[in-house]
Amino acid sequence: MNAPSPKVLLIEDEKQIRRFVRVAVEEEGCQVSEAETMAQGLIDAGLRKPDLLILDLGLPDGNGIDLIRDLRGWSDVPILILSARSQENDKIDALDAGADDYLTKPFSVGELRARVRALLRRRSRSGEAAAPVVEFGAVAVDLSRRVVSRAGTEVHLTPIEYRLLATLLGHPGKVLTQRNLLREIWGPSYVESSHYLRVYVGHLRQKLEDDPTQPKYFLTETGVGYRFQP
């Protein structure tokens, strides 16, 4: 039963932040290794094959986005970004480059542990075949039959609404940038037409959320994108 404990690589230049992140992640039963610089981090990522990467975007020796792109060439390890709030565009670029989630500084240990848990869970599940039916709240989505029901009654979705729903469900817990979603669902020529995305997410909320003004499942990451929170 004793699965090997997941390996987490932490790339962060600030010693005190590394200290408490290590404590928090170890509490989740992980083995933590640390790197202080981008260069060291990239080497460690190759050597240790971690199950999760925690990356500070404000490293002194280079652009974290390059590291993500580089890494994504040969690895699909989940990446959690730590960033300061003034780096909205960096966050988007990092997510577009392939990062999975982000935390804005300062963050609490509780939030950090929740994100780490979610990312590791998704990783361990990624080997399994995707379940044909996804359920959240009173909603059940049968991906094989393309049927959506809420509290037992079928809900009619337009083709675009369904595509949007399926895309969001395909990445539970992951932040999907506007750009990403627009390209995926409407095509490359729509990447600047963010109002389409917003209106259609609104439709999904109207049809599937209990209180569309205070959504619980289809969450807005303001200025960045959306996240499906099962």
Binding site: F20, A84, K105, V109
Partner: peptide
């Protein structure tokens, strides 16, 4: 200038918040 300031002010605060939390562990 502002983002350097923001980074420099936030880093110790992040450490402070996190370290206080880690006392619970």
């Amino acid at each position: 200038l502002l983002s350097a300031l923001s980074h420099d002010l936030r880093t110790p605060l992040t450490a402070l918040v996190g370290l206080a939390d880690s006392l619970f562990l």
